[in-house]
Simulated assay, not measured.
Amino acid sequence: MNGCLLIHGFTGGPHEIAPLEEYLRQKTDWHIVSPTLPGHGERLRLKGIYYYEWVRSAEEELKELLQICDTVYVVGFSMGGMIASFLAVKYPVAKLVLLSAALYYVNPRQLGLDIKHIMKDAMRGNLLESELFQRYKRKIASTPLSATTQFRKLVKDLKRYLPNVHAPTMIVQGLDDGVVPPKAAYALHNSIGAAEKKLLFLEKAQHIICHCEEKDVLFQDILSFLNEIPANNSKD
């Protein structure tokens, strides 16, 4: 039996990757797990949480999958991508998918465009109805400085493991991402030690990439990648 662990991002929850989870459940018979990391979910309680608790939570889920599944894939979104990369070094992960992985954080160009959109909504009197504004408002109001510090420590400490990632890896990045800049995807591709690496950019995708308008094609590409037989395992 195949298993798949989906890891969400910082200040997020399983809802960020829910469309991909639903797609995989419909198209496969895999055992799929999408846990909520400590302090995350519908109501954020991040104060007093240390980053190693996020890593340990995902690690425990992976260890359980490895006990019951012959083959295990790991998909990580944003911060979850950094955690997934680290786990792929420690454990026999068959394949790795990194979605908007947060090797770098905050894309100044796209963030500026988001602010312009918010200002336009404010000038039209539609600020309270702006989904973009409400998203930023929720994130800022619910994220203590200590949690942001822990997130940055996580990235700093885990990125040194990237050269030791040898599982076939697919890296996906949206070009309209206001949180993670496209250069993060290039840096991941250059840093990861895997012999088999695939880099995919989506022109219209923002940070929450599993909810983008190109998601149907993206999910097909992900499933195709996971179902491919690695070149070193293929038979003539």
Rank of each mutant, 00 (worst) to 15 (best):
Q134S: 12
Y50D: 12
I83S: 06
G81K: 07
V72Y: 00
K137S: 12
T71N: 09
L145Q: 11
A58F: 02
A141F: 11
Q110H: 06
Y105D: 10
L113S: 13
D114C: 13
R109K: 14
F86K: 15
M82E: 07
Y50M: 11
I83N: 01
K156R: 14
W54T: 03
A58P: 06
L132Q: 06
L162A: 05
L154N: 03
R160I: 14
K120V: 04
K47F: 05
K137H: 11
M123N: 08
Q110T: 05
P144T: 03
Y161G: 04
K116W: 10
V155D: 05
R152S: 13
K156A: 11
L154W: 03
Q134L: 13
K116L: 11
W54S: 02
W30F: 05
R124L: 15
G76K: 07
M79F: 02
Y161A: 06
L66D: 05
H31Q: 15
L46D: 11
Q110D: 10
K116C: 12
L127C: 02
L162C: 08
A147L: 05
L62V: 07
Y104R: 13
K63E: 14
A122W: 04
A88Q: 01
L62S: 10
F86R: 12
D29P: 03
K63T: 10
M82V: 15
A122T: 01
L162T: 09
S146H: 03
L111A: 15
S146Q: 11
L127E: 02
Q67H: 15
K139D: 14
D157C: 14
L154G: 02
V106A: 00
V89L: 14
W30T: 01
A88T: 01
M82C: 14
V89T: 14
V55L: 15
L66V: 00
R152V: 07
S85H: 08
A102E: 06
K116P: 06
K95T: 02
Y51V: 10
K120N: 13
R43Q: 15
R45Q: 11
K137N: 15
L65F: 07
E64L: 10
M119I: 15
P35N: 00
Y50W: 12
G48P: 09
R45F: 09
I140C: 09
P163K: 00
Y52S: 15
Q110P: 06
A122Y: 06
G41D: 00
L128R: 14
S78E: 04
V93M: 06
M82G: 01
R160A: 11
Y105T: 08
L96G: 00
L65Y: 09
L111N: 11
K90W: 07
L132K: 13
R152P: 07
E129K: 10
K47E: 13
V93L: 04
I49F: 08
A141R: 11
V72G: 00
A122R: 05
K156G: 08
N126S: 08
Y136F: 14
Q134Y: 13
S85Q: 02
L62N: 08
I140L: 15
F77S: 08
P38H: 03
K63V: 15
Y51I: 04
P92F: 02
N107L: 03
K139G: 14
R43I: 13
D157K: 12
L87T: 07
N126F: 09
Q110R: 10
H117P: 07
N107E: 10
D121Y: 05
L98Y: 02
L103W: 04
G76R: 09
A122H: 07
K63P: 02
C69H: 05
N126H: 15
P108S: 03
S100Y: 01
G112F: 05
G48V: 09
T149A: 15
H31I: 13
